[in-house]
Design a binder for these strands. Structure first.
Lengths: 209, 209
DNA sequence: GTCTATAACCCGATAGAC
DNA sequence: GTCTATCGGGTTATAGAC
C-alpha cells in the first residue's frame, strides 16, 4: 500500500537536494522527509552519494517526459519551443520567489572533488538538455543561417538559462533572468532575419517540396 | 614581520573558498592554511560567516584593481575589453584544468538560506561586474544600435561567462565555455554590423567633432 | 593578541535484534 | 526489509591561562 520505500527516499532526496543542496542535506533530513529509518536507507543505497547518483539518474530519465513534454505542450514551432522551455524555468523561479532554479546547475557548482560518477551524470543531464535544444535549432532548418553551429547555439541557450537563474536567485528578482533571455531572443531574431533576407541563402538541405 | 594575522586569515579563506567552496571549508582548514590558532580567528571575526563577508567585500573592492585592470592592460577598444575579460576567465579555467571558475558564482549557488548580508554582498559583486561591462558597451556608442539595452547586454555577458564556467567545470573541457563565448561574439559582431550598415543610424550622441 | 583544551553538537555509517 | 542504538569522527565556537 505505501509506495515503494526506495521510491519515497528518492522523492524526498530530490526535494531536499533542490531546496538545500546536496552537502547541506543530511541523511537524517532524508529519513525524516521520507518517514523511513536509517536501516532502510542503507539497505537500498550503499551510502549518501549513491542516493545522489540515483537522483541524478532520475532527472536524466525525466528530461523528456517531465521537462520537455510539459513545456512543449501546444508549441509546435521549434524556435518557440526553445523559449517555451526557458519560460518554464522562469515560471519555476517565479513560483518559488526566486529561491531555486535548476537543481543540476546548483549541484554542478557545489561539486569540488573529482567524484567521477557524479560528474558523469551531471554532464549527461546537461548533454540531454543541450541535445534536445540542438534538435530544435536543427529542425528550424534554413530559418537560421547555415553557418551557425546549432549545437553551440544550444549551449548558449543553456548558459543563458543557468546564468540567469544564478543572478535572479541572488537578487531575488526576475530582472536578470528576463534581461538575459530577452537578449538571446534578440540574437535569434536577428539570425532569422539575416537567414531569410533574400530568398533561400546558402543551405545544406534540398529545396522544399 | 609576519603580515597582519587578519590578512593571513583572509587570504587563506579566499583560496579555500575558491577551491572547496564555503560549506566544505572548515574553520580548522582556514586555521591550518593561515598558520593561526582558533583563538586568533575568533578574536578578529565573530564567526565563520563573518569571514565569508570579509572575503566577499575583498572581492568587491578588488574588481577594478585585481580583475579589470590586469585584463584590460593594453586593450583600449571597449568591445574588445569585454572579450578580454571573458578571456581572462578562460585562462583561469585553463590553468586550473577546469576545476574552478568564478568563486562568486559558486558561492551564489551554494547559498540556500536567506542570509541577507551574504546575499547583498554577492549581488554587489555581480553589480560591479555588470556595471563595468555596461560601461564598455556605453563607451562603444553608436557602434551598437541605439535600441540595444547596454545593461541587459552586460548581464548577458555575465550569464554567458557564469554558465560557460559551470558547463566547462562539469565536463572538464573548455569546449562549452568557448562555444558560449563564440556565440556572444557573433551576436555582438552582428549588432555592430547592423549598427554601422549605412552611415550613422539612430543614435543619442551628438555628431563627433 | 595568542595559545590550548574542550564543550556541545551533528555527521555518515553500522551492528544486530526482529 | 525494518527498527533502535550507537560508534567514531568532524563541526563551530568558547573558556581561560598566558
Amino acid at each position: 500500500m505505501p509506495p515503494d520505500t526506495r521510491e519515497r527516499l528518492l522523492h524526498a532526496a530530490i526535494g531536499l537536494f533542490a531546496r538545500k543542496g546536496y552537502a547541506s542535506t543530511s541523511v537524517a533530513d532524508i529519513l525524516d522527509a521520507a518517514g523511513v529509518n536509517a536501516g532502510s536507507l542503507y539497505h537500498f543505497f550503499p551510502g549518501k552519494q549513491d542516493v545522489l547518483l540515483a537522483v541524478l539518474e532520475t532527472y536524466r530519465q525525466g528530461i523528456d517526459p517531465m521537462l520537455l513534454q510539459p513545456a512543449w505542450d501546444g508549441v509546435a514551432d521549434p524556435i518557440e519551443r526553445v523559449f517555451a522551455l526557458l519560460g518554464h524555468y522562469r515560471e519555476y523561479l517565479r513560483r518559488t520567489e526566486c529561491t531555486y532554479g535548476c537543481p543540476i546547475g546548483s549541484i554542478a557548482l557545489e561539486l569540488h572533488e573529482p567524484d567521477p560518477p557524479v560528474r558523469a551524470l551531471l554532464a549527461a543531464n546537461f548533454d540531454g538538455w543541450i541535445s534536445a535544444i540542438e534538435g530544435c535549432f536543427i529542425e528550424a532548418g534554413d530559418r537560421l543561417p547555415a553557418s551557425v553551429d546549432r549545437r553551440a547555439l544550444a549551449i548558449f541557450a543553456l548558459t543563458t538559462m543557468e546564468g540567469g537563474v544564478m543572478l535572479s536567485r541572488t537578487d531575488r528578482t526576475l530582472d536578470a533572468f528576463d534581461a538575459a533571455v530577452r537578449m538571446l531572443r534578440d540574437y535569434v531574431d536577428r539570425l532569422q532575419a539575416s537567414g531569410s533576407s533574400r530568398g533561400t541563402p546558402v543551405t545544406l538541405s534540398p529545396p522544399g517540396p
